[in-house]
Lab assay of single mutants.
Amino acid sequence: MASQGTKRSYEQMETDGERQNATEIRASVGKMIGGIGRFYIQMCTELKLSDYEGRLIQNSLTIERMVLSAFDERRNKYLEEHPSAGKDPKKTGGPIYRRVNGKWMRELILYDKEEIRRIWRQANNGDDATAGLTHMMIWHSNLNDATYQRTRALVRTGMDPRMCSLMQGSTLPRRSGAAGAAVKGVGTMVMELVRMIKRGINDRNFWRGENGRKTRIAYERMCNILKGKFQTAAQKAMMDQVRESRNPGNAEFEDLTFLARSALILRGSVAHKSCLPACVYGPAVASGYDFEREGYSLVGIDPFRLLQNSQVYSLIRPNENPAHKSQLVWMACHSAAFEDLRVLSFIKGTKVLPRGKLSTRGVQIASNENMETMESSTLELRSRYWAIRTRSGGNTNQQRASAGQISIQPTFSVQRNLPFDRTTIMAAFNGNTEGRTSDMRTEIIRMMESARPEDVSFQGRGVFELSDEKAASPIVPSFDMSNEGSYFFGDNAEEYDN
C-alpha cells in the first residue's frame, strides 16, 4: 500500500469516517454492505422474486439502478423543472426478469421514488447511507470498465484509444464523492478537466460571474484530485501550473494530454476495490451473516471469500459463452479491467482472455432483445487465490505491452514486471518541450526514458491461498515475461453508450 500519510484510507472515504482504527473501519464497511443486503432482500420480497430470480444479476442491476435514481437529487430536480413526455419524475423502474413456464419473461416495473427511498433508509437504520449508494455506483463503473473500451470518449477529448488503461471510473457520476474520486484513473480526471476547458473556450461566460466562481472551485478541486494521483514531483508541479492558470485554454489542454500520456509509464495511484452486485450481499445477509459484527474490507480476502460461497446467475444470449460472461463479471467484481492478464489468470486459476476474444456482450439486456431465446446460467466467480488490492500504480518500471492497449494499471499487489510499449508511448511525445512547463516536461520525458521494462514492481508481494486469511504465506508467482498482458488488445469491444 502506498503510505497513507495525511490521506484517509478508502474504507474511511467509503464510510465518510473520520480517523478510525482498522477494526472500526471493518465494522463501518460491514455496516454499509449489510445495509445493501437488507435493502436487496426487501426489494425481492416487494417484487415477489423467487430465490433464483433474486440471484439473477440482471435483476440486481435494475434494483441497484432504481435506488441510485431515487437518490439522484440533481436529476430529480431537473426532471421536475423540465417535464418530458412519458417520463414521470417521481417514478423509477426498469426490467425485471421472471421464469414463467420454463421461459424467461421481461416485466417492466415502476415504483415511486419516495417508496424506494423509504425501503433503502429502513434497511440502513434510517440513514441515507450515501456510502452504500456510492458502492453500487463503483460496481456499475467497474462493470462498464470491463465491458467497454471507451474509444470515442478518448478520441473526443484528444487522447489515444490505446490509453484505455487510464480510464478507470470514466462512467462514474460526478456525485460519487471521495470514494469515487479515489477509483478514477488519470485519464478519467484528464477527460473531465478537458471537457471543462473546452467549454470555457467555447463559452465566454463559463468562468464568469457567480456560476463561474463555482465552476472555478470545481476545476481547482479536480486538479488537486489529479495532482494527488501522480507520484513524481515534476508531474505534480505541472498540475500546479494547470490549476493556477488564470484562464484555462489550449496550453492547459496540451499540458493535460501530455500528463495523461506520461501516466502510461509514470503511473498514478488509483484505488481498486472489489464492489459486488447487491444480489451477492442480499443472500449472505439472508443466511444470517452479520457483516457489521464480522467486519468487512473491500481490499482484502473478504470479497473473494464471499464470491467463493455465492451463487449468481445471468441471462445468456443464444451465441454467448457462459464462461466468457463469467470472466467479464469476475473482472468487474475485482475492479480488474486494466490489470495484467498474466496476473489475473494466476489468481483466477483459469486463463483470462483479452476482451476481443470473449464471445459475450454486456450483462444488460436491451429492451428490444428477444426473450424467447434467452437461457440462463451460473456465473463462475470463484478464484484459485486471493491478493491484496493496490492503491498505487506500482513502481515506475515497465515491460512490453500489446498493440491495442499500451500499458496497464495494476489492481493487485503482486510481484511482476509491468508491461508497456515504450516505443509507441515515446513516439507520441513530439519533443515539444517549450513553453512555461518546459523544464517539467524535459524531466518527465527523462524519467520515462530511463524506466526499464525488466524491473520488478511490488517486490516480494504474492497471492494467498483462500485458507490464508491473515495473509501469512505469500506465494510469489513467476510470469512468462514475453507473454501478452493487455485486456483490450487489438480490440473490438462495443462502445459504451450512456
Rank of each mutant, 00 (worst) to 15 (best):
S141W: 04
G462T: 00
K103D: 03
R441S: 11
I197D: 07
L256S: 02
E434T: 14
R422I: 08
Q149A: 12
G295V: 10
N498V: 12
L315I: 15
M163L: 15
K48M: 13
D340I: 02
V29T: 02
N250D: 09
I57F: 11
N430M: 00
D127W: 12
A178S: 15
N321G: 01
N211Q: 04
E114S: 13
L259S: 04
I347Q: 11
S413M: 10
R317H: 01
W330R: 06
F464R: 00
S314E: 02
T130I: 11
G34P: 05
Q409Y: 00
Q231M: 06
K351M: 12
K325T: 08
G86C: 05
H324L: 07
M137F: 10
Y148G: 02
R213G: 08
E443V: 10
F304I: 07
C333Q: 05
D72V: 13
V329E: 06
T6P: 02
K113S: 06
L341M: 13
E443G: 09
Y496H: 11
S310W: 03
L68W: 08
S274R: 04
A22P: 08
G462N: 03
S50H: 09
T45A: 11
D302T: 06
G431Y: 00
V463I: 09
A271N: 15
M222W: 06
E443Y: 06
G394T: 10
P410N: 04
G249Y: 07
H140Y: 14
A278D: 12
M222N: 06
E369V: 11
A129M: 12
F464W: 06
E107L: 04
R317T: 09
F488D: 06
S326Y: 03
I109E: 04
E449H: 05
L307M: 08
G268R: 05
E294I: 00
Q149T: 06
S84Q: 14
P303F: 08
D240P: 03
L328S: 09
N483P: 06
W120S: 12
A263S: 10
R106Q: 05
E434D: 15
T423M: 00
T424P: 04
L68A: 05
N125L: 14
L172F: 08
G282H: 08
I316R: 00
Q459G: 09
T350R: 15
P303C: 07
Y487V: 02
L172Y: 05
L110Y: 06
I425G: 01
Q149M: 08
A131T: 05
T45Q: 04
A428C: 12
R382P: 05
E369N: 09
L133C: 01
H334V: 06
D127M: 14
S9R: 00
F71N: 10
T130R: 13
K113N: 10
G187K: 03
A493W: 12
P477T: 12
A146K: 05
R152S: 07
R391F: 12
M448H: 05
R221D: 09
W120P: 01
N211G: 08
D480E: 14
S486V: 01
D255Y: 12
R99A: 12
E443D: 13
R74K: 14
M32S: 07
Y40V: 00
L466T: 02
L315A: 00
V242N: 05
D16K: 00
L358K: 03
L381Y: 01
W139T: 05
G200F: 07
W104I: 12
M196C: 05
L166Y: 04
T157F: 00
P89A: 15
P83L: 10
S269W: 09
V270K: 13
Y313C: 14
T396A: 06
Q398G: 03
K91F: 04
M137R: 05
Q398C: 12
T423L: 05
K48N: 07
P477M: 05
G94C: 03
T360P: 04
G17M: 05
P173W: 09
A260L: 00
V190K: 00
N368D: 08
N498H: 02
Y289A: 11
S478I: 09
W139V: 08
G249M: 06
R267I: 07
R106W: 07
K198V: 07
L328A: 06
